[in-house]
Nucleic acid binder design. Structure first.
Length: 815
DNA sequence: CAGTGAGCGAGCTTCCGCTTGACTT
């Protein structure tokens, strides 16, 4: 702590990230102390929007709770320093961070220098230090406009939803458009009518001069609409003499993809490693902190000269000159700000890295992609062979591909863009040498009924790609945005089982036709994003009253406005005023004129009672209602039932809804007590003797389940409960040793305590337990606020800010 | 927290974009 020499106090450099600070300190030497601001240090106050609308939109900034310590320390260091170097990123947000630091630390023009660099390399840093400039206030103002706009939109629209749909909901420039994409895709899929056609493939054999027989797969470019058409084609192939009618060859070139940005890394890690976008980011963070890769939140595809030199050394020494091709990539994405390099290994001479499995895999991916990006094109040759026969109207085509020079393919195989839906594009492999006139005979000709593909649902990664294409969101927000829309209950990430579907198979073998009905599973989904009912209702509401804000090009439009501000052509608060005047009016009108939106849908009437049946969003989520509520006490109260998982307001039928009212259902008696099945807050359950047992997800249907199975479940539960209980003590029945999800633990007065790894839980004595409770109690006592966050996962954010507030308050009183 | 869904209403929720920790019953 007291290590500070007088020399290090001369220059204070402030960057955004602590890992970056460490690296830069090495480059700058003893005269420079490098510290981090940990991102933004201030933000708009929460109260009254943090924006004085009546006073030219004057922002009211406060130091964030979790940055108070940081600011305190920086303030002190800045006071002692001769020169403070503000070295945050050279983009809108970075410039604003520099400005906030300037304001909050009480710096002066005399003692402050603003420097920027796009890459963390020694020459770049030294060059930056030689070329300081002033804070660019136009760029800062563009950021203030961005910040204020987002606040006004978010904090005016969310309360409209609280009043008109449901409390605690949220709306925003980015998240609501993200939900819109998913909702609209779901409706496209719902409206999609698959059309079937017949795809014909054939296996031919060819005998060469040496008598060697080779198989060739070929396909008919034409697809038939009906089984009749297909059959008559296959009939025409009976006994036909097939021969090669044309052979054409053409060269084909494949080029490597650009080095990784945040978005492309998330997509590739999802496709190749199965990582979620959040997972990718946290693994990348680890690698970054360990100095293994460059910064992982970037929209730039640029590599520094240092990196290019390393790559070229690697490629030439390991693979040879022929494999090297230095390339400069240019970003195509809208609104890219390119404050950093692309994501690459810091040291390209290291093809591997120590660390967790995940870190190794992700690093390997990054290393290969970086190296491949500087390698030569792959040269291929594509051969197309036409196969015809007299009397057969259509011709077959066989494709072959030969790699003449592998180039970048030596290290990196790119995955395809489409999400691998079950359209089995056959890999073009090798073809034997063939020439026009060669005779072929068919082994089998098969026609298989195929269905046109519905539009694919978004995965996390494909959604990020879409957002990037639309210029919505930033590298630092892709992963959090996807979490937000799930936390708000607008979207769920799920697996869905496919449904069985019949298809026709017609084949010609040995001049005989076979026709069969076969079944396949179609439409199965894994880890895809589905809108919830509430997501759909909120989306429809927002689109009805605020179509301008949630149009796909709104962000692009305001970005253009921000650009004007950053060039000094437009005054930021005038620009905001122009937007806000009409926006605020829109909000007022909506509050006054719009109906409460519950997504209500009338399904029809109950055939037994004639009562109307409807579905809507209730206090506890989507529900069905039979009958109407009325003030008249004579009229029977309406019945309610929650929709089941997989049922939706928009698609549920009257029949399905009616069945929901069959619950709770009496199954019969077991051990002289009633067995009842129903659906509760936590899903379908069986109740017996005052105890609840959950039904097995995906196996048991509460509407179908019978007594035998219910008894089975009850017995299973009893067994689990028995195993749960390891030990208790007569002297103090409150102390129990139990078996939980994370292994054995001690339960005492509704709190849980850890058992040391090397102790046998069965051997614990009462004294042992009391000791462990005492020890555990000490620890948790100190960290009481932190424990709260763990208890409430869904409201982690809320409680954590509360917790920090508390600790901050504690510290204040402590002194 | 497991048979919910009335109605009143205090006090709360909420945005986007920079950053990294703290958690494991």
């Amino acid at each position: 702590m007291a290590k500070k020499s007088s020399a290090s106090e001369k220059n204070l450099v402030i960057v955004e990230s602590p890992a970056k600070a460490k690296t830069i300190e090495k480059f700058l030497g003893k005269d420079f102390l490098v510290k981090s601001s940990y991102g933004h240090i201030r933000d708009l106050a929460k109260k009254d929007y943090g924006v004085d609308v009546a006073n030219n939109y004057k922002p009211h900034y406060v130091v964030s709770d979790d940055k108070k310590e940081v600011v305190k320390e920086l303030k002190k260091l800045a006071k002692d320093a001769e020169t403070v170097w503000l070295a945050s990123d050279e983009d809108r947000e970075g410039e604003a961070i520099a400005w906030h630091l300037y304001e909050e630390l009480g710096l002066t023009p005399e003692n402050t220098k603003r420097i920027v660099f796009h890459e963390i390399t020694k020459p770049a840093i030294l060059k930056a230090v030689e070329n300081p400039r002033d804070i660019n206030i136009n760029l800062v103002n563009a950021q203030q406009a961005r910040r204020v706009l987002d606040r006004l939109v978010g904090f005016e629209l969310s309360p409209v939803l609280w009043k008109k749909v449901k409390p605690s909901l949220s709306a925003g420039r980015v998240q609501s458009v993200t939900v819109r994409l998913i909702v609209e895709r779901e409706r496209e899929i719902f409206a999609f009518k698959p059309e079937s056609s017949y795809r014909v493939t054939a296996v031919f054999t060819i005998t060469n001069d040496d008598g060697k027989i080779t198989e060739i797969k070929a396909e008919l470019p034409k697809r038939f609409k009906s089984p009749e058409e297909t059959t008559s084609f296959l009939e025409s192939c009976k006994g036909a003499n097939f021969s090669v009618s044309d052979v054409s060859k053409k060269p084909l070139k494949k080029s490597p993809a650009a080095p990784f940005t945040t978005s492309t890394l998330q997509q590739e890690a999802s496709r190749k490693l199965g990582f979620s976008v959040g997972q990718t980011m946290s693994v990348a963070q680890k690698l970054y902190e360990g100095g293994k890769i460059t910064y992982m939140r970037t929209d730039s595809v640029n590599l520094s000269d240092t990196a290019l030199k390393m790559a070229s050394e690697q490629i030439t020494s390991n693979m040879g000159e022929a494999y090297l091709k230095i390339r400069k990539y240019h970003t195509k994405s809208k609104g890219a700000q390119e404050a950093h390099e692309a994501i690459r290994p810091t040291d390209l001479s290291k093809p591997g890295v120590s660390g967790s499995q995940q870190e190794q895999k992700l690093y390997d991916l990054i290393w290969k992609r970086t190296i491949a990006s500087q390698m030569s094109d792959a040269q291929l040759e594509k051969t197309t062979v036409q196969i015809k026969a007299d009397g057969v109207k259509e011709h077959f085509v066989a494709n072959g591909e030969v790699i003449k020079f592998d180039g970048f393919l030596k290290v990196y195989l790119q995955s395809s863009e489409n999400e691998g839906d079950n359209d089995e594009e056959e890999d073009a492999g090798l073809l034997p040498p063939m020439k026009v006139g060669d005779k072929l005979s068919y082994n089998v000709i098969e026609a298989r009924e195929r269905w046109s593909q519905k539009p694919p649902r978004y995965s996390e990664a494909s959604l990020v790609k879409k957002l990037e294409d639309l210029g919505i969101g930033r590298p630092s927000t892709y992963a959090p945005t996807i979490s937000t829309i799930q936390n708000r209950g607008y979207v769920v990430k799920e697996e869905r089982e496919g449904i069985k579907r019949n298809y026709r198979y017609i084949a010609l073998k040995d001049d005989a036709l076979v026709s069969q009905e076969k079944t396949e599973i179609s439409g199965a989904e894994r880890n895809k994003l589905f809108p919830t009912d509430i997501g759909m209702v909120v989306n429809d509401f927002l689109m009805k009253y605020f179509p301008n804000i949630f149009s796909y090009d709104f962000t692009a439009k305001v970005e253009m406005e921000f650009d004007e501000i950053s060039m000094g052509k437009v005054v930021w608060n005038e620009s905001i005023d122009e937007f806000y005047q009409s926006f605020h009016q829109q909000v007022e009108e909506t509050l006054e004129n719009s109906e409460r939106n519950t997504g209500e849908r009338q399904l029809g009437n109950d055939p037994k009672t004639g009562k109307p049946v409807l579905v809507k969003i209730g206090r506890y989520g989507p529900m069905a209602q039979m009958g109407e509520s009325s003030d008249d006490e004579e009229v029977e109260k309406p019945k309610f039932a929650s929709l089941q998982k997989g049922q939706h307001l928009e698609t549920i039928t009257l029949e399905q809804a009616l069945r929901l009212f069959d619950l709770p259902r009496d199954l019969g008696l077991f051990e002289d007590k009633k067995v009842v099945v129903g659906i509760g807050r936590f899903g379908p359950y069986v109740r017996h003797d005052g105890k609840f047992v959950s039904l097995k997800k995906g196996i048991d249907d509460p509407l179908e389940i019978e007594l035998d199975r219910a008894i089975e479940l009850i017995k299973e539960k009893r067994k689990a409960d028995k195993e749960k209980h390891i030990k208790s003590f007569e002297e103090d029945p409150e102390i129990q040793v139990l078996n939980g999800r994370f292994g054995p633990y001690i339960s005492y007065q509704k709190k849980n305590y850890k058992i040391p790894k090397d102790t046998d839980p069965k051997a614990l004595t009462l004294e042992d337990c009391q000791k462990l409770i005492k020890e555990g109690g000490k620890k948790t006592g100190k960290k009481a606020p932190a424990k709260k966050t763990a208890a409430k996962k869904t409201s982690a954010k809320k409680t954590s800010t509360k917790a920090t507030k508390k600790t901050a308050a504690k510290k204040a009183t402590k002194k």
